[in-house]
């Protein structure tokens, strides 16, 4: 029984997490470093304190709503664009430089440009959207291109209607690539969205709270908010995968 538990993958993963938490604890106990690194206990204490305030939930809702809006928009536009660029070569050639530009230009450049051109209210959505779009578009297009040509030919011979082809033929074959792409895009959305908020500081956002923690050198706050972001990112990824599994 005990041996079974020890050899279980979950147990091993838990042990790995505990190992790194122990390292974190040791670092926070160092004399100099300890001034800048909040201990795990301090972080959790601060997190519980934050959870008791209404402002915490407002910030979580504000940021999550905006990041997920940008992400979902990127999923819709990226999927449509993937299909269109797969179908029309001229469109692929036309959009390729833009996609390459988005992939290579540092996210900070986009944030600053967006701050000049737009209100900081729309910054999070825009940056999440921009960072997710090429990932979704490229990977979904690859998925569509790898659809079994023989099955497509079979569907053509039997004059299968488009909705039926989409549901029974394309979706099941593109879904694995779509799941990987959107999961990756979602984590990018969180990273880039939060970075945008830290620079643009929209009122009431998690980014603003992080910036305040930095200004006041409030490391327990910084660590607690970082933990919240990690948990939100993991939670949204799990929910997204669950949703896609239902489609499958």
């Amino acid at each position: 029984m005990l041996r079974d538990i020890i050899h279980h993958k979950r147990f091993k993963q838990s042990m790995a997490i505990l190992f790194w938490v122990a390292i974190w604890q040791i670092l926070s106990m160092q004399r100099i470093l300890g001034l800048f690194v909040a201990s795990p206990v301090e972080t959790l204490q601060r997190l519980f304190e934050l959870c008791g305030t209404g402002r915490f939930y407002l910030s979580v809702l504000y940021t999550s709503g905006r990041i997920l809006t940008g992400f979902l928009l990127a999923v819709c536009v990226g999927t449509l664009l993937a299909f269109l660029t797969w179908k029309y070569e001229w469109l692929e050639i036309l959009t390729e430089p833009v996609m390459r530009l988005i992939r290579t230009v540092p996210v900070v450049s986009f944030i600053i440009l967006a701050l000049i051109l737009l209100s900081s209210r729309y910054l999070t959505q825009l940056i999440s959207f921009l960072m997710s779009l090429p990932i979704v578009c490229m990977n979904v297009k690859t998925g569509i291109s790898h659809t079994d040509r023989e099955l497509v030919e079979m569907a053509e011979i039997f004059h299968v209607s488009w909705p039926r082809k989409l549901r029974r033929l394309y979706v099941p074959q593109v879904l694995p690539a779509f799941t990987t792409a959107t999961s990756l895009a979602l984590s990018f959305s969180w990273k880039s969205g939060i970075a945008a908020e830290v620079i643009g500081m929209p009122t009431g956002s998690i980014g603003e709270r992080l910036q305040q923690a930095k200004v006041y050198l409030n490391t327990p706050d910084l660590f607690a908010w970082t933990l919240v972001i990690v948990l939100l990112s993991i939670l949204s990824d799990k929910l997204w995968r669950k949703l896609l599994a239902c489609v499958k």
Binding site: E150, L151, E153, M154, A155, I157, F158, V160, R164, R168, L169, P172
Partner: peptide, 22 residues
């Protein structure tokens, strides 16, 4: 009506669903 040499069936679907696809 074409019966392909390689069957060309939707592998994750059952026989009835495969036929009703066409």
């Amino acid at each position: 009506g074409f019966c392909f040499q390689e069957d060309r069936l939707l592998e994750n679907r059952n026989a009835v669903e495969n036929i009703r696809f066409a």
